Amino acid sequence: MKIVDIKKRLPDTDKVTVNLGLVDLAQMDLLVEEGFYTNRTDFVRTAVRNLLQQHAEEIRQTVLRKRYVTGLQRYSRAELERVVAAGEQLEIHVLGLVTIEDDVPPKLAQAAIASLRVLGAFVASAAVRDALADRLHT
């Protein structure tokens, strides 16, 4: 999970480092040289997308089984206040991006959120991240 300070802009992509054998790398470079891919990054992105598509059903089943929400989840002060007023707590499981608005005080976040599991990125103020540290599952 990528943790981002609320004041910083969340990048559209994130860097992954991969070590490849020389023969695999040479074959990739050959395909790039022959025009099948524009560059190494294009090759790797295509390979990743193809593998994700190949495992789409397994991903779907896991998301359902673990009750993940896919995409963007944004929590405002008003929404978290409603949760606390109802005597409830949220168990947040997201495959994507979770944002807790910058006007949410740490004590409110603690009162409203029982657990937080994010596969992707988590954007919140440093104070809210610290307040939820014991509930944040990586």
Rank of each mutant, 00 (worst) to 15 (best):
residue 43 F to S: 00
residue 14 D to F: 12
residue 57 E to W: 06
residue 40 R to A: 06
residue 132 L to R: 02
residue 6 I to E: 03
residue 98 V to N: 06
residue 22 L to R: 11
residue 112 A to N: 05
residue 10 L to A: 12
residue 30 L to Y: 10
residue 19 N to L: 01
residue 75 Y to R: 06
residue 134 D to F: 08
residue 76 S to C: 10
residue 71 G to T: 10
residue 59 I to G: 01
residue 138 T to D: 05
residue 20 L to Y: 13
residue 137 H to P: 00
residue 104 V to D: 06
residue 56 A to T: 11
residue 110 Q to W: 09
residue 98 V to E: 03
residue 73 Q to N: 12
residue 73 Q to R: 15
residue 31 L to H: 08
residue 105 P to V: 13
residue 67 R to K: 15
residue 32 V to T: 00
residue 105 P to I: 12
residue 14 D to N: 03
residue 18 V to G: 01
residue 122 F to L: 13
residue 21 G to A: 02
residue 125 S to E: 04
residue 41 T to C: 01
residue 95 L to C: 07
residue 103 D to N: 14
residue 80 L to P: 01
residue 25 L to Y: 15
residue 100 I to K: 05
residue 53 Q to N: 15
residue 5 D to L: 03
residue 13 T to K: 14
residue 82 R to H: 11
residue 38 T to K: 14
residue 109 A to E: 02
residue 106 P to I: 07
residue 44 V to E: 03
residue 47 A to E: 03
residue 74 R to A: 11
residue 57 E to T: 09
residue 87 G to V: 05
residue 103 D to L: 03
residue 41 T to Q: 13
residue 117 R to T: 12
residue 27 Q to W: 02
residue 71 G to I: 09
residue 34 E to N: 12
residue 6 I to R: 01
residue 109 A to L: 02
residue 82 R to Y: 06
residue 97 L to W: 14
residue 104 V to Y: 10
residue 31 L to S: 08
residue 115 S to T: 15
residue 131 A to R: 08
residue 136 L to T: 13
residue 18 V to R: 05
residue 73 Q to I: 08
residue 40 R to N: 09
residue 72 L to K: 13
residue 58 E to I: 05
residue 38 T to E: 12
residue 127 A to D: 13
residue 97 L to R: 11
residue 103 D to Y: 04
residue 94 V to R: 04
residue 133 A to D: 12
residue 135 R to H: 15
residue 13 T to C: 01
residue 126 A to T: 12
residue 74 R to E: 14
residue 50 N to S: 14
residue 94 V to D: 01
residue 78 A to W: 00
residue 127 A to N: 06
residue 77 R to I: 05
residue 74 R to I: 14
residue 91 E to D: 11
residue 52 L to Q: 11
residue 4 V to M: 08
residue 61 Q to W: 08
residue 33 E to M: 10
residue 59 I to K: 13
residue 137 H to S: 08
residue 72 L to S: 04
residue 129 R to E: 12
